[in-house]
């Protein structure tokens, strides 16, 4: 009864929540219910009632398909490659920026380093195509200037992942360093004073004070990344993908798009099964990473 009275008193707060709850219901929870079509031979024209229930056939078809191994390999490959590079470089960048004493120089470096983050992926990929063009691209002109041979970066399977990861690093290094810089600014200065009285040099202090201070942040961000390891950004891969690099650029998300919306056949049930597989793997990875981290470093998301 008391609870009911309390709730009645807070009715304006519930009213405030209403719009976002409706949004979540319609745009997040309703599609979650829609996952059931993964178990149907779904025909849009007749809806769920008219479609045939086929159990796990869509999943079996995906696992048996010629693409399955390649998709897993590419998705994991791109993801791990960028996870490693995009963790290490921002940490180094943050450690360096933290050592700068001149406030103006520090600010300038930071402002510059954020800039690419605000450029759209369409523009970034457009820049890749333009700079890496085998005939007119500036990178190939430089390679040729030094006597090398022009490389078709955007059209070669071997180069796809590197171009993807390095252009991503250009875009995000400064941005991802923000969190680490902020964590470092919270390190107790007396630790550094004590260490330097004991004769510790700059590098020693970075190694023994600053890096350990970053560990909790690194672990938290790492768990989050592991939880999304199978969800490589569709947007950028899709833009970078072409017939010449598809062997190394086709990932689960682009495949789901192609079989679901991008082709004439529009196999909704199958595409949903592919997407669901992705979500489930992510969830399992997130929960396991969180569990391992809780056991080993006592850092966890929940």
């Amino acid at each position: 009864m008391k609870m009911f009275r309390k709730m009645k008193k807070s009715r304006q707060l519930y009213l405030l929540l209403l719009p976002s709850l409706i949004y979540l219901g319609v745009m997040c929870y309703a599609p979650m219910y829609g996952i059931v079509i993964a178990f149907f031979d779904y025909i849009p024209a007749v809806g769920l009632q008219g479609s045939k229930f086929i159990g796990l056939d869509n999943f079996a078809r995906f696992f048996d398909s010629y693409y399955f191994g390649m998709l897993i390999k590419n998705t994991l490959g791109i993801s791990l490659y960028s996870l490693v590079v995009n963790t290490i470089v921002p940490i180094i960048l943050a450690l360096l920026i933290n050592e700068v004493k001149n406030a103006k120089f520090k600010k300038a470096v930071q402002t510059i380093s954020y800039a690419p983050y605000f450029v759209s992926v369409v523009v970034v990929v457009g820049m890749c195509y333009s700079f890496l063009d085998p005939d007119t691209g500036v990178i190939n002109s430089i390679i040729e200037m030094f006597g090398g041979e022009s490389i078709t970066f955007m059209g070669e399977n071997t180069w796809f992942k590197t171009v993807y990861v390095l252009s991503g690093l250009w875009q995000g290094a400064g941005w991802w360093a923000i969190i680490y810089i902020a964590t470092l600014s919270g390190v107790d200065p007396s630790l550094h004073e004590a260490a330097s009285i004991d004769g510790a040099g700059r590098l020693q202090r970075i190694w023994h004070i600053n890096i350990p201070a970053l560990v909790p942040t690194i672990v938290t961000l790492f768990i989050m990344s592991v939880g999304s390891i199978m969800s490589v950004g569709f947007e950028k891969v899709y833009l970078m993908q072409n017939q010449m690099n598809i062997q190394s650029s086709d990932i689960i998300a682009t495949y789901a798009y192609r079989v679901g919306l991008g082709s004439a056949t529009k196999d909704f049930g199958f595409a949903t099964a592919v997407g669901l597989f992705n979500t489930v793997v992510n969830l399992v990875l997130l929960i396991s990473a969180n569990y391992v981290s809780k056991k080993t470093t006592e850092e966890s998301l929940w």
């Binding site: 745009m27 309703a30 599609p31 219910y33 829609g34 849009p44 798009y257 919306l261 949903t272």
Partner: peptide, 9 residues
């Protein structure tokens, strides 16, 4: 829900 179920909504 993923791409297709969201699209259908």
């Amino acid at each position: 829900g993923g791409l297709i179920p969201t699209y259908l909504v």
